[in-house]
């Protein structure tokens, strides 16, 4: 484990914590896309199928449990919690899941590292994770007025994959380990999708102004 991987994991963890903080303490999920949250729940459920069979380290197992538990509980809060669900922007969050899920599944069946159930599911989770942020970005664009926690959530979520890319480069040069090109492409796509958001995030930060996306 190198510093970039750890920083990436921590950024990812913080993004989830920021979101849970918003939901738990403010009892609001305004500006958060349930579609994106449901996609992440699917991503973790299909990626961590090996959680009990492929033991890497206690760290890995605990983090997997955290991501699985948090993603499903966020979905539960947004759908069923009697106060939280009232703040959900249902009418604005209209992105349809299957437009992303179906192509990712087909692509995973066609392009994968190995044609086994676990590998296809693992590849599917990578493809889906790369695009899962899209409903959230669409919602941000529509909501216009983005609160601080929501902005930080999306920023941390985007930064996590960017740090993973640095980690892959580092591992490529320092270890015998290299990640598959599928992982590279997905990681790059995922980061690039956030690039536009990053730009406006830094602009608002630099000018000390409230984050707003252009129409």
């Amino acid at each position: 484990m190198n510093i970039f991987r750890l920083a990436g994991d921590m950024t990812h963890l913080f993004s989830v914590l920021v979101l849970l903080l918003k939901i738990h303490t403010i009892k609001s999920c305004a500006g958060i896309s349930l579609k994106t949250q449901e996609l992440y729940a699917i991503v973790f459920a299909t990626r961590y199928l090996d959680i009990f069979t492929n033991h890497i380290s206690p760290y890995n197992t605990i983090m997997k449990l955290i991501f699985l538990g948090s993603s499903f509980s966020i979905v539960w809060y947004m759908r069923y919690h009697k106060i939280v669900r009232r703040s959900y922007d249902k009418d604005q969050d209209t992105f349809r899941h299957y437009i992303l899920i179906l192509p990712c599944l087909i692509l995973a069946l066609l392009i994968n590292e190995k044609f086994t159930f676990k590998e296809v599911m693992w590849t599917f989770s990578l493809y889906l994770e790369a695009v899962a942020i899209l409903p959230q970005l669409v919602l941000l664009q529509r909501t216009r007025n983005i609160d601080n926690l929501t902005g930080q959530y999306v920023f941390l979520l985007g930064a996590y994959r960017a740090l993973y890319i640095v980690n892959w480069i580092y591992r490529y040069f320092t270890e015998d380990h290299f990640v598959h090109w599928i992982t590279w492409v997905c990681g790059l796509v995922q980061t690039l999708l956030c690039a536009d958001f990053f730009y406006y995030y830094f602009q608002s930060w630099k000018n000390n102004m409230k984050l707003q996306l252009p129409a």
Partner: peptide, 10 residues
Amino acid sequence: KGGSEPHDEL
């Protein structure tokens, strides 16, 4: 060994 398996990242 090389390669990305077993998947040791999150």
